[in-house]
Amino acid sequence: MSELTLTVMRLGFLAVLWLFVIVAVQVIRSDLFGTRVTQRGSARRGAPDRPQRQAAPPPQRQQQQPSGRAASRGRRGAPTKLVVSEGTLAGTTVALQGQTITLGRAHDSTIVLDDDYASSRHARIYPDRDGQWIVEDLGSTNGTYLDRTRLTTPTPIPLGAPIRIGKTVIELRK
């Protein structure tokens, strides 16, 4: 093989290798431009976030849902997962497998809430003997709300009903 061919291949290979690196860096440039930082501190804006005002229905309650999803939700059955739909933990899901789920700022909680309005042991969610899921407020300062009512006793959770703790909203889904 001629010296020239090998030199061209050698430099060509280095060029291709660097091209890969450059393409890879291009793929992640959205990390630099167009990120969204969710921070507990930045959302702290005072009065509108206070739990007693949160009784008002949040805007997305009025949104129309695609009918296909509504149909699939029409089935009767037990919820299979707990979904955090609002707050800093939004998007977290926990599978419901008959275990008690504790909520609060304490580190050993199942869901560690990072919410100024949450107590360290705020509430717990557990199944009763019939498999119905119950939410119980554990004497929290700011209270636990099921839909719009503040909980005073352990209450069964309907599917999809929002449980509000401070700025965090939790739902049970199938």
């Binding site: 229905p57 949040p58 997305q60 309650r61 009025q62 949104q63 849902q65 009918s67 509504a70 149909a71 939700r73 029409g74 979904v83 739909s85 609002e86 939004a90 998007g91 899901t93 839909d147 309907p158 999809g160 009903a161 929002p162 909203v169 739902e171 889904r173």
Partner: peptide
């Protein structure tokens, strides 16, 4: 990176939207 699931509709919306 999984996007957060959409919040469920309120219970009264469900009453009217269920296809029976």
């Amino acid at each position: 990176r999984r996007p957060a699931p959409a919040p469920a509709p309120s219970t009264d919306a469900e009453m009217t939207q269920v296809v029976r």
